[in-house]
Design a protein around this nucleic acid. Structure first.
Lengths: 215, 215
DNA sequence: CCTACCGATCGGTAGG
DNA sequence: CCTACCGATCGGTAGG
């Protein structure tokens, strides 16, 4: 089998996706040209189009393969038969590690979903929802009052906010720093969850404020 | 003085910034054309250029006026002579309210800083640092063990992560929902802070892993 | 797999 | 001469 410069078709595709994810993360999806991607890969533009149909194809593959890895990771942890809090801590730790080693793909997933076509967005957000449900279920199991206050999903999103945000400000150097932050996030969340109270329900207004005109 | 259609110069500029912020937030800075901005404002493109020198000028004004409002807000709270925890809760509440009413500008600030030129990024990130320092100082004051464990700034960023992330998933309708989440965020953080422990320090490696080549 | 291109649209500005 | 714009089109470059 061929190796080295003449990498196999699938290996070349993986390399292209890594370069494209980095460029999309750094300059945004619309701000990245296919010329830039080709150059980063050491390919001519026509060669690049040999591996991927178009620019959008790169975006879908980056987002989908990343969220599928996250869902696989969740499935693995759910089969470990851990007590709820230990399971949540394990989920947090593994997510932080996964984000650290795939931070460009993760940024693309979180910032460029808005460029996905409805059919792709639906499929990918559906997988995201399954991931959120696993976290929320574990939280409701460990702290029943949180579930009863309808706060399991909102607090799951706060937890994701903490984890996701780490990757917008932490120095890229030293992935061990991310690892060290995982227990900090877990301690903050698990320590704070018992203090959660049901939020004040707003009076059932007939209608929300008038919607802003969309362009 | 003239009113109505013939709005004043400054009023027209404010309207343009609101429309541009919404479009940048929805399609990204590079993904938004000046034609779209002009159309959203009901102006011809030459008219748009009468109010702003170029597209970049819009970006800088959106980001800068938003961060300046946040810093003003921080200054106000710091002059209220509140006890540390009450001050932190007030900061959280006001930030959530500010983000809710300026969520497009906020998304631009968080997602499109990467398109700022170094001199503008430096100025704007400098103001951001002052905001972070106010939060971190309050946290270290209320929970001295957090400050001693060098966790005041990292946990401030986790707190910002929770708040910022709310605006990427919450339904745009009903800004009162944001208001209801402010005490949830505050309870989670204030409840969890006492549980924080100093993270395991990694062994003092001579050098971090080799830096990745920047494009 | 490269050179050479296309239809269209980009950010920005001309004349009037 | 100023302002506040318009219809039309500039030079370059995008994705393909």
């Amino acid at each position: 089998m061929s190796r080295g410069r003449a990498a196999g078709y699938e290996e070349q595709r993986e390399q292209i996706l890594l370069h494209a994810a980095r460029l999309f993360a750094q300059h945004g999806y619309p701000g990245t040209s296919m010329n830039e991607v080709a150059q980063a890969c050491g390919l001519s533009k026509p060669s690049l189009y040999h591996y991927f149909r178009d620019k959008y194809d790169l975006l879908v593959h980056i987002a989908e393969s990343h969220i599928v890895r996250l869902r696989t990771l969740v499935d693995e942890v759910m089969h470990e038969q851990l007590a709820p809090e230990a399971r949540l801590r394990e989920l947090i730790h593994r997510f932080v590690r996964e984000y650290a080693q795939a931070r460009y793909a993760h940024r693309v997933l979180t910032e460029d979903v808005k460029f996905l076509r409805p059919e792709d967005a639906e499929r990918i957000l559906g997988t995201e929802r399954a991931v959120v449900a696993a976290f929320a279920g574990t939280i409701a199991e460990q702290w029943p009052h949180v579930g009863k206050a309808q706060l399991a999903k909102p607090t799951t999103m706060l937890l994701f906010g903490m984890i996701n945000w780490m990757f917008t400000w932490f120095r890229p150097e030293g992935e061990l720093d991310y690892e060290a932050m995982a227990p900090v996030v877990a301690d903050l969340f698990c320590g704070g969850a018992p203090a959660l109270k049901a939020p004040a329900r707003k009076t059932p207004r007939r209608r929300a404020a008038k919607a802003q005109g969309s362009g």
